[in-house]
Design a protein around this nucleic acid. Structure first.
Lengths: 241, 241
DNA sequence: AGCTACCAACTTGTATACAAGAATACATGA
DNA sequence: TCATGTATTCTTGTATACAAGTTGGTAGCT
């Protein structure tokens, strides 16, 4: 392919807009490249991205809504600490939604395209076992396939939002504590139970799958207690129940 | 109580901020005081509230995230049409979450304060049967009580966001099609099954309750087809099946 | 009349300037 | 040395000015 009449290979010449800033910051926070508690000056971000404060603020407003950033008026903007409340809540919401999704998929079936996409996601995970970012991307894609396949629109975005807090913990050291082979095996089982149209088996398998993910998160939380805020009211439920 | 040293009874002297604008617009959209498709000029809103475009835009960004407003760059800002996709999705998410919530509440019990709050909400609904806004407020409060009572933080905000599209339909003519007495009766049954710690009965009752709410929404949709956008891919699933 | 080209008045997106509060460094006093 | 008052310099929140694009009306021509 001959080069088009575009003057240069440096695509970065055009400054990013508010949406790009939002995506970039969100990814950096979830990937833990921006650590909980870290300060984010609006002026500094604008300088770094080569734009003014206005689009930076638009991005920050959305990130505050997602619970990834905390703004203290006239004091500063900070990456939100990982909240135990938020993690517990995310686990509950994800469990409820994904179990309902997998049951719906197993009861009413999935389109052929979705089955193929899930198989591809499993395949990609097998080849990405050593790269946390690639592995997580394929993991997300696997789960998202079922959410989008049951015909209720973009349900996954709800899980995705809740999962953000959660994923920050996973990115602390995914490969160290999570048994990757086991996760992929469970993915295979989940897909096969859905293909076999067995809702009870699908629900049971997914329940075990999500439980393992939570256990690894709890372990990671104990290893890095400095990044987590324990805002649980009742100390009896402190252990993420 | 003698008047404090505040100069006047006109509390409205201070101009509203971005958060107030957001709440006001959100309520007006859900209450259908702002109709789907209606145009919202940023300049006009700023003039109406007595502030500049900046805080108005901050509010609009959040409302776009919630799917209540659509912005067409350089063309205009509009109240989002009621999307069939969004309604179906909201129903699925609400069903999954509220069923999980009520089951959790029935299995592990609720704090005494939550029980009292639910009773109060039922009481308020009995006295607000003729006022849609008051009735809906008490209805929300009833359901929210269980969500907040199970100790997983502010789960209700997830349901609340999804429910927004839904509620717009209900506000088209709540009293005309929804059997209010039946709804209140179901609330009483739900609360009693939770108090009796009977998860299966609680789930069954809530399932019927949510189903009735959906049925009335479908009826309302047929009465006001001009406000709804049919963006369902598969025409076979057109009936909100 | 009917069609085309243009222009003026809007829209949102972004940049910049100003306002008000909070924190820190520093001078000043005992 | 230690406490205290003050001023400077940060921060975010808001107001305003500019840039780029769309729309609708209208003058002019066929």
């Amino acid at each position: 392919m001959a080069p088009k009449n575009v003057e240069a290979p440096h695509i970065r010449s055009m400054p990013p807009d508010a949406e790009t800033i939002f995506q970039t910051l969100r990814t950096d926070i979830i990937r833990m490249r921006l650590r909980p508690g870290e300060r984010l000056s609006e002026n500094e971000l604008g300088l770094r991205f080569g734009i003014s404060r206005t689009p930076v603020r638009a991005a920050i407003v959305r990130l505050v809504d997602d619970g990834l950033i905390k703004v203290l008026p006239q004091r500063g903007t900070y990456v939100a600490p990982i909240s135990l409340q938020a993690v517990r809540r995310a686990r509950f919401v994800r469990n409820a939604l994904e179990l309902a999704i997998i049951r719906e998929a197993a009861e009413h079936g999935l389109p052929e395209a979705a089955i193929l996409e899930a198989q591809q996601a499993i395949h990609d995970q097998e080849n990405a076992a050593t790269d946390p970012e690639l592995f997580t991307e394929a993991d997300d894609r696997f789960h998202r396939t079922f959410a989008n396949g049951i015909g209720y629109g973009n349900i996954w975005s709800v899980v995705e939002n809740e999962k953000a807090q959660f994923d920050r913990i996973r990115f602390l050291s995914l490969s160290h504590v999570t048994p990757i082979d086991c996760l992929i095996d469970q993915h295979r089982t989940i897909l096969s139970t859905v293909e076999a149209r067995d809702p009870d088996a699908a629900e049971q398998t997914l329940r075990a799958h999500l439980s393992i993910v939570v256990e690894s998160a709890v372990t990671l939380m104990r290893i890095n207690p400095d990044l987590i805020v324990n805002d649980i009211d009742d100390p009896l439920k402190d252990r993420l129940g």
